[in-house]
Computed example of a mutant assay.
Amino acid sequence: MSSRIPISSSHSADPEKQIAGSEIAYYLSRMLVSGDMSDVKFAVSNDSGDVKILSAHRNILSIRSDVFRTMFHGSLPEKCQEAIVISDTDAQAFASMLSYIYTDAQVILNAEHAFRTLACADKYDLPGLIRMCAKFITDDSRKSALNWNTPDIVEGCLSVVDATSVDVLQSDVFTTVGADILQLILQRDTLCNEEHIIYLAAKKWAKEACSRAAVDPSGTNQRVMLGAALHLVRFPLLTDAQLLDGPAKTGLLLKSELWDIFHHKHAAVKPDLPFRMDARQNDSRAEGVINYTVPDLRQLTETFTFSPPIRVRGVPWRIMELLDTANGYVNPSDFSLKLQVYLIADLPVGIEPE
């Protein structure tokens, strides 16, 4: 079963305002929605088995995306066919990607839609749309992740928080998340931040919670607002000066807790603590040096390979070697192949390392 759907129904009310006030974007959107002068069709399958037909224009797609340029104008261009079959995404996400290509408009509807559109943006190499999706996810999806009750989506949100925690923990959005999500974030071993920054973020959250509850932001009240999240901050990792200038002054920690922390840090006989003491994976230094010997080209069976990772600021980095092969495979007798070497980070799609 196949049917035609509009690229975006949101442009019908007041398109000149909804497409960033750009006249050219408005007319491009009209071309996309109407299919006028289109020269390529995409057949996009849904989970239900239905196929949606989306029309577009090869040159416009090629201008915006090198992937489409290669597809339509490369050495092995896509052969003319009734419709190019797209089976690895849904029609809504693919249509949103097309709408962005034509208009640069904000096309994200919700966080779940952002994840699906992000996969399209990554596949077709659209950095602007990748940033748009990633920003939407980091700003909004943390609030609703638990409501989906889907472990994969929750973990995906938290992975984004890990990789962007420098900005996330210092953002105003962080102070608005619920206590359950706060606990999920603070218990992460992979937050790319110093523990002192994590403490300050938790304190800021607690202070804002006191403000919402219309109570005095005293240390005692902040403890109450944090609840179980208080013991997810790894206070023993703070320096003595940070402890004295921070929780010791504000009253966030009890005197007995402070005494036990100092006793544990400096005494031979160490008391048990209600706080974790193991460091998070956030060291600003490399944990090692990548020593990578380029293998014999004749032994390669694929066009690229990876080195083992090392971690920098909690982010795993690898060396990737890529063979420049015109035919997409390695000829064992060809020693003139170019070897390109890159340093890449294993990050969630769309997130750029600092």
Results as ranks from 00 to 15, higher is better:
Arg4Thr: 13
Ile5Asn: 03
Ser8Gln: 09
Ser9Ala: 10
Ser10Ala: 14
Ser10Glu: 11
His11Asp: 04
Asp14Leu: 06
Gln18Asn: 11
Gly21Ile: 10
Ser22Gly: 06
Glu23Leu: 04
Ser29Met: 14
Met31Ile: 08
Gly35Phe: 04
Met37Cys: 02
Ala43Arg: 11
Val44Tyr: 10
Val51Gly: 03
Lys52Gly: 02
Ser55Trp: 07
Ala56Gly: 12
His57Ala: 07
Leu61Ser: 11
Ile63Cys: 12
Arg64Trp: 03
Ser65Asp: 03
Phe68Val: 12
Leu76Met: 14
Cys80Val: 01
Gln81Pro: 02
Glu82Tyr: 02
Ile84Ser: 08
Val85Trp: 00
Ala93Phe: 05
Ala95Tyr: 00
Ser96Trp: 12
Ser99Phe: 09
Tyr100Thr: 04
Ile108Gly: 01
Ile108Ala: 01
Phe115Val: 00
Lys123Ile: 02
Tyr124Leu: 08
Tyr124Arg: 04
Asp125Arg: 06
Gly128His: 09
Ile130Asn: 11
Cys133Met: 05
Cys133Phe: 01
Ile137Gln: 11
Ser144His: 07
Asn149Leu: 11
Ile153Asp: 01
Gly156Glu: 13
Cys157Asp: 15
Ser159Cys: 14
Thr164Phe: 01
Ser165Val: 01
Ser165Glu: 02
Asp167Tyr: 14
Val168Ser: 02
Gln170Cys: 04
Gln170Thr: 08
Gln170Val: 08
Phe174Thr: 05
Phe174Lys: 04
Val177Ser: 08
Gly178Val: 09
Gly178Tyr: 05
Asp180Ile: 00
Ile181Cys: 08
Gln183His: 06
Leu184Val: 00
Lys204Asp: 08
Trp205Ala: 11
Ala213Tyr: 05
Val215Ser: 06
Pro217Phe: 10
Pro217Val: 12
Pro217Leu: 08
Ser218Leu: 05
Thr220Asp: 10
Leu226Gly: 04
Leu226Gln: 06
Ala228Pro: 15
Ala229Ser: 15
Leu230Gly: 02
His231Gln: 14
Leu232Met: 15
Leu232Ile: 07
Val233Asn: 03
Arg234Gln: 04
Pro236Asp: 03
Leu238Phe: 07
Asp240Gln: 02
Ala241Pro: 00
Ala248Tyr: 01
Lys249Val: 11
Leu253Tyr: 09
Leu254Trp: 00
Leu254Val: 00
Lys255Tyr: 05
His263Met: 09
His263Glu: 13
Ala268Phe: 04
Asp272Pro: 01
Arg276Pro: 04
Arg280Thr: 06
Gln281Asn: 14
Glu287Tyr: 06
Val289Leu: 10
Ile290Thr: 14
Leu297Gly: 13
Thr301Gly: 10
Thr305His: 01
Ser307Glu: 10
Val312Tyr: 09
Arg313Tyr: 07
Arg313Lys: 13
Gly314Met: 13
Val315Pro: 00
Met320Glu: 06
Leu322Ser: 06
Leu322Arg: 09
Asp324Glu: 07
Thr325Ala: 03
Phe335Glu: 09
Leu337Val: 01
Glu354Gly: 13
